[in-house]
Design a protein around this nucleic acid. Structure first.
Lengths: 214, 214
DNA sequence: TAAAAAACCGACTGAGTACTCAGTCTAATT
DNA sequence: AATTAGACTGAGTACTCAGTCGGTTTTTTA
């Protein structure tokens, strides 16, 4: 593996576990076998390592979220909300390092004085909230989700799910045991209570099944 | 103001805005007018300052939550859930410094090797989740809230509300505009859908109203 | 194969860190 | 007025940190 890649990998690991400030260049040097000088040959400074990680996070994760949007196959928007929650938690678990970096102070501190960083964070969060918003909008069109404010409902859903990432990161609660209840709570929060509306739209689409298969 | 108190106040301020690690003793010294030696006269080390803040947080906030529990006056448990959300967000705004300290990495890192710190965090979070749990339990007894898992529902509610603290802290979203929608979402998530149950229990208590007045 | 370019090295620097300590100041007590 | 004790001081200490620099090795190009 190229030294540059090794440095990025180690930095992602250490920044997420120990935080940006608490990770020293000496530590990265030792972990990668690269001399400290080599790190500064590849990256202008420590901050630039962090920004590179954030850029990679956007470039890695955004396509995965977009691919998910294109590939998912569900009956109703309400089912898709459930899928979206699952997908978010799944991504947060396989990319744990990257997600927990977003729960640190440093990126937001950096964003205050660094437009690129702010832009990166904005585009990452936009994609996160969008998968919920799209699911909710779909549900509102097919009648499975009530007429609540779409974007705000998406944010509330995101708030719920994102806390789970925090709970896991800090070992506050066993989030696995909350999973089913969270899905159920999300459904109750969003589902349409008016059956008239529920029937009208699916008929016009020719979709007939009311049960979904996973 | 006594130097010791000034140091604690400044430390709370700086730890919450800049983080524990990024706050230097020189900074605290400058902000309080106390010499660096004075800080170490009052506190064994930097960590001890943090633990003192955490102890005060528990001692300040817990009684306020308990007073709230004793004083609140609502019709149904579902209304009380709404009150609890309001109260939590209110406390988080008037004690912003203390709440944002709980969203940092340091306390959880310290908790791993420091039983007192872990104990402090646990008792703080217990009180937080308890106000929601008590409201939900009350609602389940008066029939306004459905038969969902009490503790888990409380945690999901807490997850939702606690994210708002994070959103505000990092300037991610304008949480004021989410407030009403969050209350409404919380109600839909919890309310009882079975009118039979809604009537049965209040009857046995001698309470007759099935509609609530806000 | 020679020259040029890119990658890499690690000792070094100076600014900053938490913390110490010998001693001063203040205010109450004797 | 003398004693005492707690509050306070700030220069000093040992150490860590991100970042530099002169030089060496490896790879690519000609």
């Amino acid at each position: 593996m190229k030294k540059r890649d090794a440095i990025l990998q180690a930095a992602t690991y250490f920044f997420s576990r120990k935080g940006f400030k608490d990770t020293s260049m000496a530590e990265l040097s030792k972990a990668t076998g690269a001399a400290e000088g080599t790190i500064f040959y590849h990256f202008k400074n420590k901050q630039e390592i962090f920004l590179t990680i954030l850029r990679n996070l956007r470039d890695d994760i955004l396509p995965e979220f977009e691919r998910y949007e294109a590939e998912k196959n569900v009956n109703t928007g309400l089912d898709m909300v459930e899928e979206s929650i699952s997908f978010y938690l799944y991504m947060a678990s396989i990319k744990e390092d990257l997600f927990s970096i977003l729960h640190q102070r440093y990126p937001y501190e950096l964003a205050e004085g660094n437009p690129e960083c702010r832009q990166l964070l904005e585009s990452i969060y936009e994609v996160f909230v969008d998968i919920f918003e799209n699911a909710i909008r779909m549900g509102q069109q097919d009648g499975s989700i009530g007429p609540w404010h779409t974007r705000k409902s998406a944010m509330i859903l995101f708030a719920m799910v994102d806390s789970m990432v925090r709970f896991r990161m800090y070992n506050l609660y066993d989030i696995a045991s909350l999973y089913n209840d969270m899905i159920a709570a999300g459904r109750r929060m969003l589902e349409n209570r008016n059956p008239a509306v529920l029937k009208r739209i699916p008929d016009s689409d020719g979709v007939v099944t009311s049960d979904r298969d996973v």
